[in-house]
Structure formats: structure tokens, C-alpha cells
Design a protein around this nucleic acid. Structure first.
Lengths: 111, 111
DNA sequence: TATTATATATAGGATAACAAAATACTATTT
DNA sequence: AAATAGTATTTTGTTATCCTATATATAATA
């Protein structure tokens, strides 16, 4: 499976919202989960993920809460806000529009 | 569609290669053709397209040739090189891999 | 004459993905 | 006890590229 990093651009926020809509997670867990679910395709770097989480939180789309644990480091669990759910819904639609538009170019009706 | 900009990022080169693989075109024509074929979705700006064409030509993927016309401005027609055809083929494969990976996140098998 | 459409080009700003390193704690191995 | 590996978050600096805006030029139309 050939991987092109450029393709991820502009989609990471949607992927994160989608993942957190299904389940609250903390940063490190998100990295592992994305890799697992995509069968190794997505390998988010810390320098990509954490700034993205902060961006989404600042925009009010997700909310992070510190969770103290006695046998490990504190973790910051993120969950989707109502605003985040609404955003995810529009982003899903935008993603479909985009796919459709690209396919019209890549696979035109008449060749 | 405010988000559209980010989705296009990293994909414009593939779109251009694909378009020029089907037919030689000049810049202005490409803008119009992309808009038409995508039913208005893609509206490339000059500041996006021309630098992209120069980038692709510099990389040896496309080749531009000036065509003089007596009743209009000169046009620079671009066509795909052999290297460009090879590149397009791998980019098509990458695009499919990417779609598959995203769909594994957006529509997981079990929810 | 002014505007619109055609046609190419580039400077400057904004955003985001990445590599890399810093920090810090826990668990396992030697 | 010390070293190593794994877990977990943060930040700095670099790079790529998409956009706005502007500049230039010609032909057709109002």
C-alpha cells in the first residue's frame, strides 16, 4: 500500500471528529486507534495530532478533560461537543461532495 | 464550503495530470474545464493553477509549448510526458488506497 | 469609451503537516 | 539498582501549497 502524506491534508480534522464521535479517547490512543482501524495506513505524528486536538478544542468542537490515574501518567480524554457533532455532519457531506468531484475528473463518464 | 480549500490541497497535481493525460490544454482552458467537469465544484484560481503548472513542468511531468494565434493572445499548451503518465498511474493507486483508509474510519465495519 | 472575457504571471500571507526534540512517568528486563 | 522500552503530552522550526491580490495584454461587446 503506497502512502501519500499530501492526501491527509485537510482531512485530519474530520477523521478526528469521526473517531471521537464514536468514543472518547486521549491523544496517544487516537494515534494507535487510527493506525489499527485503517490497517496501518494512518500513522499520525505527535506534531500533527496534538496541535490538531488543541485546534479543535479551541474551536469548541471537542472538549478535553484530564483524568488522573494512580498507575500511569494523567491522560487528557477528549469528547465531541454538540457543536462538534454538527460539524462532523457537515464535514461528512463535504467529504462526499469532494469525492464525487474528484471522481468526475479521474473517471469521466466518456473517455 | 469554507473547508474545500484544505481538501484540494495535495490533490491539485493529480487532477491536473489526469486532465492533461486526456487532452493537451492551456491554463485558462484547464480552469474552465475543471469547473465544467466537476459541475462547478472545482474553481481553480490563477494563483493556484499557474504555479502548479510550473511545478509540474519543472518536475518533468508535463511539457508546455507556446502556440501563437493571429486573433488572440499566445497560449501555452501543456501535455503529459512519459514520466507524467507513470506518475499519474501511481497517483491513481494512491488515491484509491487513501479513499479506502478514510472509509475504514468514517464507516467502520462495526459500530 | 468602458467593460467584459480571455490569457499568463508572480508576490505575499495563511494554514497545516511533519520531523525532531523535550519532558516525564511506568513497567520490564538485565 | 540500572538500563531499556513503552506510554503520554507539548513545542519549535521547516516545508508545502492554496489563496488573495495585483500586473500585464488582447479581443469583443455595450
Amino acid at each position: 500500500m503506497v502512502q501519500k502524506r499530501e492526501l491527509i491534508k485537510g482531512n485530519s480534522d474530520s477523521l478526528l471528529l469521526c473517531l471521537l464521535a464514536q468514543q472518547s479517547m486521549y491523544g496517544y490512543q487516537i494515534i494507535k486507534e487510527l493506525e489499527k482501524r485503517s490497517q496501518g495506513y494512518f500513522q499520525f505524528k505527535e506534531g500533527t495530532l496534538y496541535p490538531a486536538l488543541h485546534r479543535l478544542e479551541k474551536a469548541g468542537l471537542i472538549l478535553g478533560k484530564w483524568q488522573m490515574l494512580f498507575n500511569s501518567r494523567p491522560r487528557r480524554y477528549y469528547h465531541l461537543t454538540a457543536k462538534g457533532h454538527a460539524k462532523l455532519s457537515t464535514e461528512r457531506a463535504q467529504w462526499q461532495d469532494f469525492i464525487n468531484a474528484v471522481n468526475l475528473i479521474l473517471q469521466p463518464a466518456e473517455i
